[in-house]
Design a protein around this nucleic acid. Structure first.
Length: 947
RNA sequence: GGGCGGUUAGCUCAGCGGUAGAGCGACGGUUUUACACGCCGUUGGUCGGGGGUUCGAUCCCCUCACCGCCCA
C-alpha cells in the first residue's frame, strides 16, 4: 500500500542510488546496438561554484532532453565535468591560506601553491557535482572530466602548439584589460561596464610658441595626463585648424606633445580637443598608432603611478620651464603668485611615484588648479570598466601577451551557422552570434596566474621563443636554431642535450585563459587528441544548452576550435553541436536579476528540500518558454509539488481499486467507451509531449503532460471509473482496471523526463502491488508511441462531461444545496442520447448529484433547462428554482447565441469574404452557425415553457 | 548611438491571421471509494496607444510610448 503522501526527501536519495547501481546513466545505457547517438556536453560549471538557479534551469532542460532521448532508444551520452576557473580558484585558495594564517602564494612558490590548489580541489571541488546529482541530472558520472585533467591538458597543449605553428597564435604587445587586483590580463568578456558618477575635468594645455594660447581638453581620468603624448582635434574643426601641427606643452611634465588631426575627436563632446594617452586608453592606442605617437606607461602592475626609472616617461621632458600661471584671485583678494607649469622630475617623483590612482587623480587636479590650468569641472556619468571577479577598476595596460587570431577562426564558425550546420533555438540569437563574430577582436589567452595550463613556450637566452609540446622538444628546436645561426657550437649543443634545458631555456610563466580549455570541451572530453570510440560515436554532439550570456564565452569559442580541429573523412570541418538551445535567465518574482548583493537569491537546493526535486524541475521546464525570462515565484513551485502529490494520490486510488498491471494487456483492444476514450487521450498527450520536446518547447511539453494527467485522467477518467468499480459488470471492471493501470504506466513514462524521482518510485511500487517484476528501471523504459485515436469515444465522453458540467453549473447558480439529490429529465432525447444516458447512468447520477434520470416528451414545469445537443436536460426544481432567475439565465444565453449568429451572418453577407476566405473557414463557420441556430431554437423553447 | 526582446484577466505567463486560454489569486460552495498540496462552481480581458495591409488583426507591417537586456 502506498503511503498517504509522497515524501520526496526520503525517496530521492534511494532512487538516485538505484540509478547509480544500474549504471542507468552510462553512455549508451539501454540502447540497442547501432542505436542513433545523442550527446550533450554539459557547459562545465566552475569548480569553485555551487548550484544557483541558472544551473538548475540549465541542467533541468538538459536532463529532460537526455532522459527523453534515452527512453526513445538513442545511445545517449551526457558528458559532465567542471572547469578549473583560473582566477576564481586561485582566489578561493589564497583566501583560505590567509584565513589559516599561512604564508602567501609568493612566499611558498609556484609548485607548493599548486599542490595546495589540488588539495583544495580534492576536498571541495565536488560540491556542484553533488548538487547536480540531487537535481537528478542523469550525466554519465563515470566519465566526469576536469579541464586540468591529464587528458584535457594534453588537448590544450596540442591545440596551442598547432595553432602557433599555423600562425594563429602569436605574441604581441597591445593594450589589454588589466586587473590590478589579481595582476593579470583578463578578457573583454570578463569586464563589466559600470555606470559611475564622475566628472569631466577641463585642463588647459599651453600651446608652444603662442604665448597666452591654450588648448583645453576634457578628461574623465586626470591622472593619465602624465602619459599624454598628443592632443587630437577633428580635422574639420575650424576652432583648432590653426593649431594642427603645432605642439602643446604638457603641464606638470613639460613634454612637447603634437596637436594632431584625427577623426576620433568628436567636436561636439567636451571642448572638441581630446588628450591622447596611447598606453592607457583603447581609443587613444589606435590614435597613437595612426600618428606614430610614443606610448608611455605610467602605471605598474598594481595600477600605481610609476615614474622612478621610467625611461619612456623621462624621455624628452622639461620643456616650457619658463611658463607659469596661477588661478585668478577672488574679488578684493591679493593676487596669487604665478607658479611654473612644469615641475622638476624629482619633485614629480616624490609627489606621485608609487601612489594609487585615486590619490594621483586628486593631486594632479590640485597641481593643475594651483597653476590656473583647471578650466572647470563638470559632473559626468560614464561607464567605467570593472573586473567581474575582483570588482576593481580595470586598466587598459600595455603588455606582451599571447593572442589567438580569432578573426581567422571565426570565418568557418560564421559559415557553419549561416549554412545551417549549427542552428540556434530560438533563431534570433543568431544575430547576437553574428554580430560578435563579425567584430571579433584578437583573443588574449595568457593570464598572469599560476593555476591553469602553463603556456608551452620557452625562451632562449636572447628571448627567442620556442613553442613545443614538451621541454625537450623545445630544447631540440632551440639547439637547432642557435646552431644554425652559429650562436652555439657543437660542443655546447652536445652539453645542452645532456644537461637539459635548465639554465638555458626559461619557460613562460603564464597560464592560459580558462576558456581556452573550455573551448575544446566538446572533443577533449571525448578523448581527443586520441581517436577514441566515443569521439567517433558522439561527435558532433546533438545540442548545447546554455544561457545567452554564454554565447560569446563558449558557443563562439567552441565553434571556432571544434571546426578547426575536428574534420570528417573528407577533411571538412565538423561543428561541435548541431543545435544551440539558448534558454532564459531566471529572475526573482519581481523580474529582478538574482544577485547576492540584492539578497534576492533563491537557493535551488532549498526549494528541493521544501518541495522536492521533481517539483522544482517541473516548474523550471514549465516556465521555460522561448524568448522570455523566467520570473520564479515560490508559489509556482508549490503548485507543481501539488501536481506531484496529485499523481501520487491517483496511483493510490488505482491501487485501492486493484488496478494492477496485466501482462500482455493491449490497450488498443479495449471496448468500453471510457477506456477507449482515455486510451485516445493518452495517445494525444504522447504526441503533444513528443512534438513539443522535439521542438525544444519545454513549456508546451510540460503543459500537455500536466493537462492530461490532471484534467483528463484525474478529473474525469478516475471519477467516471468509480461507478464501474462499484458496479457489477465484471468484464468491464476488469478491462477498466487494466486500462487504468496501463494509462498510469503511460503517464509515468511521459512524466519521467520532468519528474524522474516520483515516477521511478511509482514505477517500482505499481509493479510491486501487481506482484510483477519490471524488466528494467523506468529510466531505461521505451518512450510510449502514439496509438489510435478514436473519435466516437471522444464524442461520447465529451457529451458526458458537457452534461455533467452544465448540470453542476446550473445547480450552483440556482443555489441547489450540494447535498441535495434532484432528478433529471431528458426531453427530446434521440436514441443515441438515450443509450449514452443509460450507459453512463451511474456516473451521471454520482457526478451531478442526481436522484434519477427520466425521459419525457415535454419538460416538467418550473425546471431549469439545459440544451445539450438535440435534447434538453431538465432539472425540475419546483419550489427551489427561481423561475425569474432561470428566465434571465436563458435569455442571456439566447442573446449570446444571437450575437454569435449575427457575427457569422455578417461575414457571410460580405461577398469579399465568400470570395476570398479559405473554403474550410467558410465550412467551419457554416457548421458553427447551424449549431448556434439549433441551440437557439432549443433555448427559446425552454424559455417559452417557463412563460 | 547600434542591436535584441517585452507590453494579453489582480499576479505569473501561453496563444500569434477566423474577435482569447492556463496556473496562482479572489469570491461562493463542499468531509462524495485517492487527494483540503483536494473537489465543484463563479468572477475577471476596448490582447500598451495610433495608423496600415487583409474579406477578417491579439497575431503581419509602420509608428509612438513605456519597460528590460546586450554591444559601443
Amino acid at each position: 500500500m502506498l503511503e498517504k503522501t509522497y515524501e520526496a526527501a526520503a525517496v530521492e536519495p534511494r532512487i538516485s542510488a538505484d540509478w547509480d547501481e544500474a549504471g542507468a546513466f552510462r553512455a549508451g545505457a539501454g540502447a540497442a546496438p547501432g542505436a542513433a547517438p545523442y550527446a550533450i556536453v554539459i557547459p562545465p560549471p566552475n569548480v569553485t561554484g555551487s548550484l544557483h538557479m541558472g544551473h538548475a534551469l540549465n541542467n533541468t532542460l538538459q536532463d529532460v532532453l537526455v532522459r527523453f532521448e534515452r527512453m526513445r532508444g538513442k545511445s545517449v551520452l551526457w558528458q559532465p565535468g567542471t572547469d578549473h576557473a583560473g582566477i576564481a580558484t586561485q582566489m578561493v585558495v589564497e583566501r583560505q591560506m590567509m584565513q589559516r594564517q599561512e604564508p602567501g602564494r609568493r612566499d611558498i612558490g609556484r609548485a607548493a601553491f599548486l599542490e595546495k590548489v589540488w588539495a583544495w580541489k580534492a576536498e571541495s571541488g565536488g560540491t556542484i557535482v553533488n548538487q547536480l546529482k540531487r537535481l537528478g541530472a542523469s550525466c554519465d558520472w563515470s566519465r566526469e572530466r576536469f579541464t586540468m585533467d591529464e587528458g584535457l591538458s594534453r588537448a590544450v597543449l596540442k591545440v596551442f602548439v598547432d595553432l602557433h605553428r599555423a600562425g594563429l597564435i602569436y605574441r604581441d604587445k597591445r593594450l589589454v584589460n588589466w586587473d590590478p587586483h589579481f595582476e593579470t590580463a583578463i578578457s573583454d568578456l570578463e569586464v563589466l561596464q559600470v555606470e559611475v558618477k564622475g566628472s569631466y575635468w577641463y585642463f588647459k594645455y599651453p600651446v608652444e610658441g603662442v604665448p597666452g594660447r591654450f588648448v583645453t581638453v576634457a578628461t574623465t581620468r586626470p591622472e593619465t595626463m602624465l602619459g599624454d603624448t598628443a592632443v587630437a582635434v577633428h580635422p574639420d574643426d575650424e576652432r583648432y585648424a590653426d593649431l594642427i601641427g603645432k605642439f602643446a606643452i604638457l603641464p606638470l611634465v613639460g613634454r612637447r606633445i603634437p596637436i594632431v588631426a584625427d577623426d576620433y575627436s568628436d567636436p561636439a563632446k567636451g571642448t572638441g580637443a581630446v588628450k591622447i594617452t596611447p598606453a592607457h586608453d583603447f581609443n587613444d592606442f589606435e590614435v597613437g598608432k595612426r600618428h606614430s605617437l610614443p606610448m608611455i606607461n605610467i602605471l605598474d602592475r598594481k595600477a600605481q603611478i610609476t615614474l622612478v626609472a621610467n625611461e619612456a616617461f623621462a624621455a624628452d621632458i622639461g620643456h616650457g620651464a619658463e611658463l607659469a600661471g596661477a588661478p585668478e584671485a577672488a574679488e578684493g583678494e591679493e593676487p596669487i603668485a604665478p607658479v611654473s607649469y612644469v615641475l622638476p622630475l624629482a619633485e614629480l617623483e616624490t609627489a606621485l611615484d608609487g601612489q594609487d590612482r585615486v590619490f594621483a587623480r586628486k593631486l594632479v587636479v590640485e597641481l593643475m588648479q594651483r597653476r590656473g590650468l583647471l578650466a572647470k569641472i563638470e559632473p559626468n556619468t560614464h561607464a567605467v570598466p570593472h573586473g567581474d571577479r575582483s570588482g576593481v577598476v580595470i586598466e587598459p595596460f600595455l603588455t606582451d601577451q599571447w593572442y589567438v587570431n580569432a578573426y581567422e577562426l571565426a570565418q568557418p564558425a560564421l559559415a557553419a551557422v549561416r549554412e545551417g550546420r549549427t542552428n540556434f533555438v530560438p533563431k534570433n540569437w543568431e544575430n547576437t552570434y553574428y554580430q560578435w563574430m563579425e567584430n571579433i577582436q584578437p583573443w588574449c589567452v595568457s593570464r598572469q596566474l599560476w593555476w591553469g595550463h602553463q603556456i608551452p613556450a620557452w625562451y632562449g637566452p636572447d628571448g627567442e621563443v620556442f613553442v613545443a609540446l614538451s621541454e625537450s622538444d623545445a630544447l631540440d628546436a632551440a639547439i637547432h636554431h642557435y646552431l644554425t645561426r652559429g650562436d652555439i657550437d657543437a660542443v655546447r649543443a652536445a652539453a645542452l642535450r645532456t644537461d637539459g634545458a635548465a639554465g638555458f631555456l626559461t619557460r613562460d610563466e603564464d597560464v592560459l585563459d580558462t576558456w581556452f580549455s573550455s573551448a575544446l570541451w566538446p572533443f577533449s572530453t571525448l578523448g581527443w587528441p586520441d581517436s577514441t570510440a566515443e569521439l567517433t560515436r558522439y561527435y558532433p554532439t546533438s545540442v548545447l544548452v546554455t544561457g545567452f550570456d554564454i554565447i560569446f564565452f563558449w558557443v563562439a569559442r567552441m565553434m571556432m576550435m571544434g571546426l578547426h580541429f575536428m574534420k570528417d573523412e573528407a577533411g571538412d570541418p565538423v561543428v561541435p553541436f548541431k543545435d544551440v538551445y539558448i534558454h532564459a535567465l531566471v529572475r526573482d518574482e519581481k523580474g529582478q536579476k538574482m544577485s547576492k548583493s540584492k539578497g534576492n537569491v533563491i537557493d535551488p537546493l532549498e526549494l528541493v528540500d521544501e518541495f522536492g526535486a521533481d517539483a522544482l524541475r517541473f516548474t523550471l521546464a514549465a516556465m521555460a518558454a522561448q524568448g522570455r525570462d523566467i520570473k520564479l515565484a515560490k508559489a509556482r513551485v508549490a503548485g507543481y509539488r501539488n501536481f506531484a502529490t496529485k499523481l501520487w494520490n491517483a496511483a493510490r486510488f488505482a491501487e485501492m481499486n486493484d488496478c494492477t498491471l496485466v501482462p500482455g494487456f493491449d490497450p488498443t483492444t479495449v471496448t468500453g467507451m471510457l477506456n477507449r476514450w482515455i486510451t485516445t487521450e493518452l495517445s494525444r498527450a504522447v504526441v503533444g509531449v513528443t512534438q513539443a520536446l522535439e521542438a525544444y518547447r519545454f513549456d508546451a511539453a510540460a503543459a500537455a503532460a500536466y493537462r492530461f494527467v490532471w484534467n483528463s485522467f484525474c478529473d474525469w477518467y478516475l471519477e467516471l471509473a468509480k461507478p464501474i468499480f462499484m458496479g457489477d459488470d465484471e468484464a468491464l471492471k476488469a478491462e477498466t482496471r487494466a486500462t487504468c493501470a496501463a494509462t498510469l504506466d503511460g503517464i509515468l513514462t511521459l512524466l519521467h523526463p520532468f519528474m524522474p524521482f516520483i515516477t521511478e518510485e511509482l514505477w517500482a511500487k505499481t509493479a510491486e502491488t501487481a506482484g510483477l517484476t519490471r524488466d528494467r528501471l523506468l529510466v531505461l523504459t521505451p518512450w510510449p508511441s502514439a496509438g489510435a485515436t478514436e473519435n466516437d469515444a471522444a464524442a461520447e465522453i465529451d457529451w458526458l462531461v458537457g452534461l455533467i458540467t452544465e448540470i453542476r453549473s446550473v445547480r450552483s447558480e440556482m443555489n441547489v444545496p450540494a447535498a441535495a439529490q434532484i432528478p433529471l429529465v431528458l426531453v427530446g432525447a434521440n436514441a443515441v442520447t438515450r443509450a449514452r444516458a443509460a450507459t453512463h447512468e451511474s456516473a451521471i447520477l454520482r457526478l451531478a448529484r442526481l436522484s434519477e434520470i427520466g425521459f419525457a416528451d415535454a419538460a416538467p414545469g418550473a425546471s431549469a433547462q439545459i440544451v445539450i445537443g438535440e435534447a434538453t436536460a431538465c432539472l425540475p426544481l419546483e419550489g427551489v428554482v427561481d423561475v425569474a432567475a432561470e428566465r434571465v439565465r436563458l435569455k442571456k444565453e439566447v442573446e449570446r447565441l444571437i450575437q454569435e449568429i449575427g457575427r457569422i451572418d455578417k461575414m457571410f453577407a460580405n461577398p469579399q469574404f465568400m470570395a476570398k476566405a479559405k473554403e474550410e473557414v467558410i465550412e467551419e463557420n457554416r457548421d458553427k452557425r447551424e449549431e448556434y441556430v439549433a441551440r437557439r431554437a432549443k433555448v427559446e423553447e425552454a424559455l417559452a415553457r417557463l412563460a
